[in-house]
Simulated scan of single mutants.
Amino acid sequence: MERQLLADEVRALRARRGYSQDELAKLIGFSQSTIKNIETAYRMPTKEQAHLLDKALDTAGVLTRWESRIRAAPISPGFRPFAAAEAEARALKWFEYSVVPGLLQTEEYARMLVEAFPGLTESEVVARVAAKLDRQAVLELEDPPWFWAVIDEHVLHRNVGGPPVMAAQLAKLVEFARRPRVCIQVLSAACPHNAMGGGFVIAEVARQSTVAYVDTVLDGQTVYDRAMVEMVGVVWESIRTKALSDNESLGLIEEGAQQWQQRIAS
């Protein structure tokens, strides 16, 4: 939401000054596509770009302060617009290639993943983990969204935090897989697919357009464009139809949990 507000503010300030996107781009020394991406919330301005925009638009540092505030928040700028859709969704369709979906992670598993991100202080780690756990409340509502998840089989065997963390994490997957509005499917490690570059989520929200989030190594992107969201949906259906059934998947997850428990005992 804040990212979209920043985009709207840049667009309004540019219009008030009477600049075209191309004219503003030349003033700050960047391309017209950079301005377009900022104004459509496709990309956050960097600290340098925010400073240059403040000078060009005579804003007394407003955009620089916005940029600092957004980047300091515990949820990444690329995901933040999607977080609002996630909280209001009637259905969530989630694919993960390398990790357990965020809404299904244990605190210990989530912390291990956050700590792996370079350059974070302890307080930043705590804030990010807390923000992720807070989001999980959506699945605890009296009327929760329908939740479909497809996870690559590698997720069950990737050692995140050691056997105790993994055993607890897979036990939580088993618990969720047995809930009435949750379906977790495993995609066999031997099955090639067209989303090996990363995970994504589709949120279907009542009385609003469907929104998608596509993960990347740096930040990720919330997608509103109807054609792009539709394509993400096509990829989702392709992956889901290749995955094991929910019952077969539950058996595989239970087997993985037992294997991690055995590693603890040994």
Results as ranks from 00 to 15, higher is better:
residue 49 Q to Y: 08
residue 197 G to N: 09
residue 60 A to R: 15
residue 194 N to M: 06
residue 158 R to D: 05
residue 259 Q to V: 09
residue 52 L to G: 01
residue 152 D to L: 01
residue 247 N to C: 08
residue 111 R to M: 12
residue 200 F to C: 05
residue 247 N to M: 10
residue 167 A to Y: 05
residue 204 E to N: 11
residue 67 E to R: 14
residue 12 A to L: 09
residue 43 R to W: 09
residue 33 S to T: 15
residue 34 T to K: 15
residue 41 A to Y: 07
residue 259 Q to E: 11
residue 62 V to K: 15
residue 245 S to V: 03
residue 113 L to Y: 11
residue 197 G to L: 06
residue 83 A to Y: 00
residue 246 D to L: 00
residue 228 M to E: 15
residue 54 D to T: 07
residue 226 R to W: 04
residue 190 A to W: 00
residue 243 A to F: 01
residue 203 A to M: 06
residue 149 A to G: 02
residue 154 H to R: 09
residue 166 M to Y: 03
residue 263 R to A: 10
residue 65 R to M: 11
residue 156 L to W: 02
residue 31 S to A: 14
residue 236 W to M: 08
residue 116 A to F: 04
residue 233 G to Q: 12
residue 61 G to N: 06
residue 25 A to R: 07
residue 12 A to K: 12
residue 79 F to Q: 09
residue 35 I to P: 01
residue 111 R to W: 06
residue 163 P to N: 12
residue 38 I to V: 15
residue 124 E to G: 00
residue 158 R to S: 07
residue 123 S to F: 00
residue 33 S to H: 11
residue 227 A to T: 12
residue 134 D to G: 06
residue 174 V to H: 07
residue 189 A to S: 14
residue 41 A to T: 09
residue 65 R to T: 14
residue 104 L to H: 00
residue 58 D to Y: 10
residue 97 Y to D: 15
residue 130 A to E: 11
residue 23 E to T: 14
residue 104 L to W: 00
residue 211 V to R: 11
residue 41 A to Q: 06
residue 110 A to N: 03
residue 57 L to T: 08
residue 222 T to D: 04
residue 185 Q to S: 10
residue 103 L to C: 01
residue 228 M to H: 14
residue 181 R to W: 09
residue 266 S to D: 03
residue 103 L to T: 01
residue 146 W to A: 06
residue 18 G to Y: 13
residue 69 R to Y: 14
residue 125 V to C: 06
residue 193 H to G: 01
residue 145 P to I: 09
residue 222 T to S: 04
residue 155 V to I: 04
residue 74 P to K: 05
residue 202 I to G: 03
residue 134 D to H: 12
residue 146 W to R: 08
residue 33 S to G: 10
residue 200 F to S: 06
residue 35 I to T: 07
residue 252 L to M: 13
residue 210 T to M: 13
residue 251 G to Q: 10
residue 152 D to Y: 03
residue 186 V to C: 08
residue 250 L to F: 05
residue 36 K to G: 08
residue 219 D to F: 06
residue 57 L to R: 09
residue 196 M to R: 00
residue 211 V to Y: 05
residue 24 L to R: 03
residue 178 R to P: 00
residue 173 L to H: 00
residue 34 T to D: 13
residue 115 E to G: 06
residue 219 D to V: 06
residue 185 Q to N: 09
residue 238 S to G: 11
residue 104 L to Q: 00
residue 173 L to T: 00
residue 59 T to A: 13
residue 82 F to Q: 04
residue 22 D to A: 15
residue 215 D to W: 03
residue 190 A to Q: 02
residue 14 R to A: 08
residue 201 V to Y: 02
residue 124 E to L: 01
residue 127 A to S: 06
residue 75 I to N: 05
residue 156 L to T: 05
